[in-house]
C-alpha cells in the first residue's frame, strides 16, 4: 500500500482550467438542460483573515439532485472563479434531502470546495438552506459549534438567490470540514 499523493496549491494561474459556463449547471447545452426542479442562485463572497476579498479562488460545487441522489439524472458538479470582489455565483437546482449514516437523513446541502493560492490543500465546507426543517437534525450542522453554525447556512436574498459568505480566517471564520 502506498500513501496518497500529496496536495499542492492550485496557485494564482489555475484559470487555464476555468470554463465559466460550468458555473451554470442549468445551461442549455449542459448535462441538466430541461430537468425539473427549483431553480436557485447560490452566491457569496470569499474573504481572508484581513477581511479582504479573495479574487483568485476556484470554487467547486458538488450536490445531489432534487431527488437527493448523487448518481441520478442530475449532474451536480460546477466550478466558478471568484471575481475581483471575491464573489462566486452558481445557477443550479435546489437539492433534496440526502441519506446519511445509519437511519439519519441529511438536510439539503451543497458541498463547496475552495482551491487557491495560499491553500496547500482544498478547504471544504457545506451550504445549507435557512428555514429548512431538516437542518434541526442534520448530523453535520449538529456537530458544528452552535455559535458557528450560521457560517454554514445560506440566507434567502430574493428571486431564488441564496447567499453565503465564506471567511477563511478570523472573526466569523467559516466551519471547514475534514472529509
Amino acid at each position: 500500500m502506498s500513501a496518497a499523493t500529496p496536495s499542492q496549491t492550485a496557485g494564482p494561474y489555475w484559470h487555464l482550467i476555468d470554463f465559466p459556463e460550468w458555473a451554470d449547471l442549468l445551461r442549455e447545452d449542459g448535462p441538466n438542460a430541461g430537468l425539473a426542479g427549483e431553480r436557485i442562485l447560490l452566491t457569496g463572497r470569499v474573504t481572508d483573515g484581513d477581511g479582504a476579498p479573495c479574487p483568485d479562488v476556484m470554487v467547486e460545487l458538488w450536490q445531489a439532485g432534487p431527488d437527493g441522489e448523487y448518481g441520478g439524472a442530475f449532474h451536480g458538479f460546477g466550478r466558478c472563479a471568484t471575481d475581483a470582489e471575491g464573489r462566486f455565483r452558481f445557477v443550479t437546482l435546489r437539492p433534496g434531502p440526502v441519506r446519511g449514516r445509519g437511519n439519519a437523513v441529511q438536510a439539503p446541502h451543497v458541498t463547496l470546495s475552495l482551491f487557491a493560492r495560499g491553500l496547500l490543500r482544498q478547504l471544504v465546507t457545506r451550504l445549507y438552506f435557512a428555514g429548512e426543517p431538516l437542518n434541526e437534525t442534520d448530523p453535520v450542522l449538529s456537530a458544528a459549534e452552535p455559535e458557528r453554525r450560521a457560517t454554514l447556512i445560506a440566507q434567502p436574498a430574493g428571486g431564488g438567490e441564496w447567499r453565503l459568505d465564506i471567511r477563511l480566517q478570523g472573526e466569523g471564520e467559516t466551519v471547514f470540514l475534514e472529509v
Binding site: G49, A52, C54, Q169, T174, L177
Partner: peptide
C-alpha cells in the same frame, strides 16, 4: 498567512 483556517476542521 491570511488564508489558513485557525479553528480545527470538523
Amino acid at each position: 498567512r491570511r488564508r489558513h483556517p485557525t479553528r480545527p476542521l470538523l
